[in-house]
Design a protein around this nucleic acid. Sequence first.
DNA 1: TAATTATTTTTGTGATCACATTTTGAAAAT
DNA 2: ATTTTCAAAATGTGATCACAAAAATAATTA
Lengths: 234, 234
Amino acid sequence: MGILALEPLDRPDGMTTHEYAHRRLRQAIMVGSIRPGESLTIRGIAEAMESSPTPVREALRRLSSEGALRVLDNRRIMVPRMTADRFSELVSLRSLLEQHAARRAVPHITERRIDRLAEIDKAQDEAIGRKDNATALLLNQEFHRTLYTANPEQVIMPMVESIWLQLGPFLGIAMEHVAQLYFVDRHVEAIEALRKRDEDAVAAAIKADISEGIGGFERAAIENLLRLAGQSVA
Amino acid sequence: MGILALEPLDRPDGMTTHEYAHRRLRQAIMVGSIRPGESLTIRGIAEAMESSPTPVREALRRLSSEGALRVLDNRRIMVPRMTADRFSELVSLRSLLEQHAARRAVPHITERRIDRLAEIDKAQDEAIGRKDNATALLLNQEFHRTLYTANPEQVIMPMVESIWLQLGPFLGIAMEHVAQLYFVDRHVEAIEALRKRDEDAVAAAIKADISEGIGGFERAAIENLLRLAGQSVA
DNA sequence: TAATTATTTTTGTGATCACATTTTGAAAAT
DNA sequence: ATTTTCAAAATGTGATCACAAAAATAATTA
C-alpha cells in the first residue's frame, strides 16, 4: 500500500493543487496507508499526482505543522515512528480534548444534527459488518467531527484532527496484524445523552468510546505490534 | 507596527529560508505586532525579508495550519479577527491543555529545570518592572514552555503554541489600549509545587495563572477593546 | 571478500517566469 | 455627487530551472 492507495478523491474545481495534495496525503495518513518510517519524496508525490514540486511542498509543510509528518535533519520527510510512550500521550490527550469538545458542543446541538449523527452511526455499523475497516474508521471520525462542530467557534477541531493524524499510522499497523479491528460503539449512548442535553453523560460516553476503543490497547500489545511492524521500540 | 516590527532575529546558518520566515512571522504574530484584519501579501513579505515568494508561501501555509492565519475565499491571507466567543473558547482550551501538560511534566521534572524556571521567572519580573511588555510576554511563554517540555514526549506543546498564536493578536490590541498589561505571577507557586512533585498543586497554580491572567478579561472589557480596535463585534 | 573512495544520481531548496484572478484607480455615465 | 465601466497594477498559483547537499551506485583498494 503506497501513497496512491486511496482512489484519487474527487477534486472540486476551484480547489488549488496544494490543497488537493494536502487532502489526499492527509487522508492517506489518517487511515494508516503510509507506513511509519517510509520516507516521502517531494518529486515522487508530485509525479504520482501529476503536478509539480511547489504545491506538494506546501502540502507537506502543512502536514508537518499538523504533526502528521516529521522533518528530519537530513531534510527528509517521513511519517513519525510510533512508540508506546507517544501512543499513551496521544490517547490521553485525545480523551481530554474530545471530552471538552463534546461538552462545548452540547449547548449548540440541534435535533437535526443529532439525527445526522444517528445516520452516520448506522452507516458505520454497516461498514463494520462488511469488515470494511477503512470506511468504518472514516465514518467514526465523521461522527465525532459532526458532534464537535456543532459548536460554531472552532478552535478545538483542528487539534483533534491533529491527534487523529498522529494515531493514523498506528491504526494502519494494527489493521495489518490484527486482521479485524475491534470497534467499540458508545455512539448510541452519546446520542441519547445529547437528546437530553446532558453534558456530563455526553462527555462520559465519549470518554468510554475512546478508552474502550483505541485506548483499549494495552502497553504490551502495543509494543508487540510495533515490534512486529519492524519498529524498534528503543 | 508592521511585519518588521521585531529586529530581524538571528539566523543560524543551515536554517532554511522558509524556516526563517516562519519563525519571524510567528514571533511577530505571537506578541501581537500584526493587527487582525491586516492582510499579508506574499510578495510584500518576501521583499521585506529579502527573499522570494516560494519560501514565504511555505511559511504562510504552516502558520495557517497552526491557526495563526486564515486563508480567505479570495485566497487572501490575514490574521483572524478576534471575537468574544472565540476568545472564551481559546482561554478555556488553554487552561485545559496547560493543566494537562503541567501534570504530565511533573514526573519528568528535574531540580535543574526547576532552577531554570526560577531564573526565567526572575527575568520576567524584571521585564515587568521595566514595563517591557513584549519581553515579559516572551519570558512568560518561555516559563510555560520550559515546564511542559520536561515531558520528553511532546504532543501537547505544539497545540499550546497554537493557542498562544491565536491569542497573540488580541494581546497586541490590549497592549495598545490598556497601556500597561497586568501580569499575574503564580509562577512562584508553581515552582514550589514542583519541588514537592505535587501534580495537583502544579495544575492549580497553572490554572490560576491563566484564569487570573489573560482569563481575567471580562466579556464586556473584551468587547469594548475589540470595538476600540475597530473590530466589528458582529 | 570487505571496506573505502570516487562517481553518478537523486533530492530538497529557492528564485524566476507565465498565467489567471482579483483589486485598485481612473474615466465615463447617470 | 454618485454610480458604473474599463484599463492598469497587484496578487496568488504553479511549473521550471539551477544549485548544493545527500544518497545510491560503481570502482578501487586493503
